[in-house]
Design a protein around this nucleic acid. Structure first.
Lengths: 147, 147
DNA sequence: TTGTGTGCAAACGATTTGCAAGTGT
DNA sequence: ACACTTGCAAATCGTTTGCACACAA
């Protein structure tokens, strides 16, 4: 998906919700899709501040939440206390491998796991809405250091 | 495993770490193994307060962390912000199904998923230490209500 | 006795909120 | 104009910590 396309769908989203496209929302949106890393709200605020975007902390939190609501960002719980975000551009659904040594996050997809999840949910009478699978361990270079 | 057994292993654990068996630690330990529900620190504090245990909030947090460290409690991240605990008595490793309607938590085990997790980790050069799989959805009675 | 453990209240870190002032449409 | 938005600072929530006192070993 091209940037233009997703940009337009953001504007659609705002219109549909009767929200305004302000300078701040614009800055946040653009930066969110410029980066290809996972980030926290505070990191993100730092980036904005560096480039003198003039967007306040409160607005960063409010706008990131908005982007999650609209499905432009995924919220990701790394287990460190803060919320992590990642944009969805070109990302299909995936789960995460988290290195407890260096904090690095890898993405993977494993349809066979997904299928088994459905099977489990059905067995327990649940209608599955979402899932979250985190694999924690040491990445190659960290496990080399550790041994 | 009988209560007596796990109780003794708790005392062992304290001895090994040169920690003292205080009245407060005793209260917390006993209550933690008395309940068969998942609980948060604040809920737990509430229970203790009801029975006039005279254990302070600070000590509850400190002791729950201690019990996790010793492997007597499992820490569980339900995605609601607070930490949830569950005792390990007779619980083998398992993952969770979380009802987003009523908050109910079901446990399940699925060795085939575990096997695939190892496979994924290996593929990415990770040495797996732990994992966390949460399936979110509606339980039978909540999905009935919803429809 | 002596090093641990405890309670209290203040400190914390991430996030949210009320409110008065600013701004898209 | 007028409702939506913002920035600010204060408020929240769960959890942690410093410190003087209490207490297991």
């Amino acid at each position: 998906m091209k940037h233009e396309t997703i940009r337009r769908s953001f504007e659609e989203f705002l219109k549909k919700k009767k929200l305004r496209l302000t300078r701040q929302r614009d800055e946040v949106f653009e930066l969110a899709f410029e980066t290809h890393e996972h980030f926290t709200a505070e990191t993100f605020l730092g980036w904005l501040t560096e480039r003198d975007s003039g967007v306040s902390r409160a607005t960063v939190y409010r706008t990131l939440a908005l982007l999650v609501e609209g499905g432009f960002l995924d919220l990701l719980d790394v287990g460190t206390g803060e919320a992590w975000y990642e944009h969805v551009l070109g990302h299909q659904h995936h789960d995460h491998l988290i290195c407890t040594g260096c904090g690095r996050i890898e993405e993977f997809r494993e349809p066979r796991i997904e299928a088994l999840q459905e099977e489990v949910a059905t067995k327990y009478g649940f209608v599955l809405k979402d899932h979250d699978l985190r694999l924690m361990g040491l990445c190659k270079s960290c496990s080399r250091k550790a041994s």
